[in-house]
């Protein structure tokens, strides 16, 4: 069964008189447990598409069903609740809170759950273990390398055990070796933990870690390789 199902999705941005047509009628199905690389030239609408799947933006037309939930028309509050349960986000620039230790950054999404303080801490430790950073729990982001920061961000995306991970150029800011480590980690999360992963990337080598690659060009999916 498809965990992501988009039909006839359009997205337009209007700024004053100017109208930018970004997505022109996208149809897309992603199976649960898949690992998708989304490629395409800059400005083709990759981030825009990812944001729709992640439920942080709404399409101009069409339907977006993710993890069994139609996202179009949900209130901002309902969407927030839905994201907390179903989606983990990983960004190019990590977006960790600089004032919090690695462990507390990871714990952050759990503040929205009913878990006790102790349980939250334990889950955060487990997530840090999965990404291999248990010995850096007390360090702040400023004291970690880029690759380590991205691992913390991955642990944070994982900690609430979402079904889907959406990653926007997660290795875009890292060197080759570090990027490979991160991609290896994503593969493990996909294979061993059953996470469905949708990853935007410019890098064909990064895409090769995925099971499937999708190409977006001028707002259309031009070729869906199976």
């Amino acid at each position: 069964m498809a965990i992501v199902s988009l039909s006839n999705v359009e997205k337009r941005f209007t700024k004053g008189r100017e109208v930018v047509e970004v997505l022109h009628g996208i149809d897309l199905e992603i199976a649960e447990g898949d690992f998708i690389a989304l490629m395409g030239p800059s400005g083709s609408g990759k981030t825009t598409l990812l944001n729709l799947i992640g439920g942080i933006d709404q399409p101009t037309a069409g339907s977006v069903v993710v993890a069994g939930q139609e996202l179009v028309g949900l209130s901002s509050k309902k969407l927030a609740q839905w994201r907390a349960e179903n989606i983990g986000f990983i960004f190019q620039f990590y977006n960790l809170l600089p004032v919090l230790t690695a462990q507390r950054n990871v714990e952050l999404p759990l503040l929205l759950t009913r878990l006790s303080g102790k349980q939250r801490k334990r889950n955060a430790d487990v997530a840090l273990q999965i990404v291999g950073l248990e010995d850096r729990a007390r360090h702040k982001p400023g004291e970690l390398s880029g690759g380590q920061q991205q691992r913390v961000a991955i642990a944070r995306a994982l900690v609430a055990d979402p079904k889907v991970l959406v990653c926007d150029e997660p290795t875009g800011d890292l060197d080759r070796d570090t990027a490979d480590e991160i991609l290896g980690l994503l593969e493990i999360l996909n294979k061993e933990h059953g996470k469905t992963i949708i990853m935007v990337t410019h890098d064909p080598k990064a895409a090769s870690h995925a099971r499937h690659t999708l190409h977006l060009d001028k707002g259309l999916l031009v070729e869906a390789v199976t």
Partner: peptide, 12 residues
């Protein structure tokens, strides 16, 4: 950072 909190599901 505040936007990131919202992505995790913190409400407005």
């Amino acid at each position: 950072e505040l936007a990131v909190l919202k992505t995790f599901g913190f409400t407005d």
